[in-house]
Amino acid sequence: MGEEFELHCARPTGGPVGANEESQSDETSEKTSREEMKMIMVGQKAPDFAAPAYHKGKFVNVKLSDYLGKWVLLCFYPGDFTFV
């Protein structure tokens, strides 16, 4: 399980780990990567990422690659307090 992190006023957020990371600060390449958003392929590696999480009363950092060796069901959804 991820490590607990210290709270600050900004809202911490997640991001991909690895290749895309450096290019994201540069405005031009950010535009390119946005235009290039496409579906990933089955049978290929899942993009690794790190993200803050709320887990059983604690705020922790989670990294997808920490779960190598386990099956993972990764579920995205539109928003908290929505209806479905």
């Binding site: 991001g15 496409k38 099956w71 539109p78």
Partner: peptide, 27 residues
């Protein structure tokens, strides 16, 4: 950003769509 990497971020609406991924022990 992560949603974008997975191809399920709806930039116009600013939310993630209902994407569900099964990832095996090799990632």
């Amino acid at each position: 950003k992560v949603g974008t990497a997975y191809g399920i971020y709806d930039e116009q609406a600013g939310v993630e769509t209902r994407g569900r991924f099964i990832i095996d022990p090799d990632g």
